[in-house]
Amino acid sequence: MPSSVAFYKSTPVFSETSVPAALQRDHTTAAGVWAKIMVLEGSLEYHITEPAPEQRLLSAGDEGIIAPQMHTLLRYPAR
């Protein structure tokens, strides 16, 4: 994330049962807005769907960075 990025807001902590459905579907951040996913426990699949498809498995302590207008979605790994 660029050093010029300033904190804007944070969301509540989500669990496997409380992550909003909108984050589990393809979505984007607004122009100029960066996002950081912080995994506190367990694991989370972080999917970049555009511009270049990519999938990452984030585990406790990992972070995922989302650039402005990047298409992403979140999934919990199958158990």
Rank of each mutant, 00 (worst) to 15 (best):
G61I: 05
L23C: 03
R79A: 14
P20M: 02
T72Q: 12
S59I: 06
L23G: 01
R25C: 11
A31Q: 10
H27E: 00
T29C: 01
G32N: 10
S10Q: 15
M38F: 09
V19L: 15
V39R: 05
F14V: 08
E45R: 14
Q69I: 00
R75G: 04
R79S: 13
H71Q: 11
M1V: 15
I37T: 04
A6V: 11
P12H: 03
I66N: 02
P12K: 14
H47M: 06
A60G: 14
A67M: 09
W34S: 02
T28Y: 02
P68W: 03
A78F: 06
M70W: 00
F14Y: 15
G64N: 01
M1H: 15
L57K: 14
E16M: 07
P2G: 06
G64Y: 04
L57N: 13
F7S: 02
I65V: 15
A22W: 11
P53H: 08
T11N: 08
E54Q: 09
M1R: 14
V33D: 00
Q24Y: 07
A52Y: 02
T72I: 12
S4K: 12
S3W: 10
A60Y: 05
R56F: 09
Q24V: 00
A30F: 11
F7T: 05
P20S: 05
R56S: 13
I48L: 12
E63W: 10
P2W: 00
V19Y: 14
A67I: 01
P68E: 04
R75A: 10
R79W: 07
G64T: 05
T72K: 11
L44K: 01
R75W: 01
E50V: 04
